[in-house]
Design a protein around this nucleic acid. Structure first.
Lengths: 109, 109
DNA sequence: AATATTAATTGTAATATTGCAATGAACTAA
DNA sequence: TTAGTTCATTGCAATATTACAATTAATATT
């Protein structure tokens, strides 16, 4: 298949999985870390910084933008990307709720 | 391709991506949530709870176990699964460091 | 021993992901 | 207008993922 049966899961579970999936590639992790460090930067900078081909970076940026985690502003011939603060915070809330489940009570078999 | 060029990224970036990737499917999110709620349970319980076929659940469990996030104890003919507390905490530390990047300073373009 | 139960493994089909060359679109500069 | 710059899109090949039927392995029960 290669196709997740999303209809069997809650909206929240699917949302968590979608966010996690986009973080599931080191290039996208790297892009996001760079945007946090540099505040905002142009697509070409990321191509130089990361070393993947331009279409590849462009595709990863598209996925991040599609989930709303970054914004892209056209500035002449270049496009300036940056973190979407509000959506990042919302994503963080969702992911923390999942990651922060209480481990202390667990009594394993 | 379909193959991430992991050699271009730091160990930390690859580690974050690997953890995120395993959370990138709602079935695995669901399995983990259930284990947190129920404390520990047998593979067959997860098959009933989630509704995917047994080999499919078994495969997802294998991935979670491979990353060390769960443990499986054989008990007769059944296998009892539970969260690996220590490894879960370590994973949480890694993921929080990534998710908790400071949004307040960002001045977008 | 023979049968039943439970879960892992194997094999396979369908779909998704990754990466890049080639191209196209939009703007800039000469 | 022409040429250059920057990024998105398209098309394709290689690999990965998801799901399950069929089977196997291991233990339990009769």
């Amino acid at each position: 298949m290669g196709l997740a049966k999303t209809e069997m899961f809650t909206d929240k579970q699917n949302e968590i999985a979608l966010f996690a999936k986009v973080f599931g590639h080191p290039a996208r992790v790297s892009i996001l870390q760079h945007l946090f460090k540099i505040d905002s930067c142009v697509c070409g900078d990321l191509v130089n910084e990361i070393g993947l081909a331009q279409p590849t970076i462009s595709q990863h940026l598209k996925e991040l933008k599609h989930l709303g985690l970054i914004k892209g502003n056209v500035e002449g011939t270049s496009v300036c990307y940056c973190i979407n603060k509000e959506n990042w915070s919302n994503m963080k809330t969702v992911m923390l709720e999942f990651l922060d489940q209480d481990v202390s009570k667990i009594e394993c078999c």
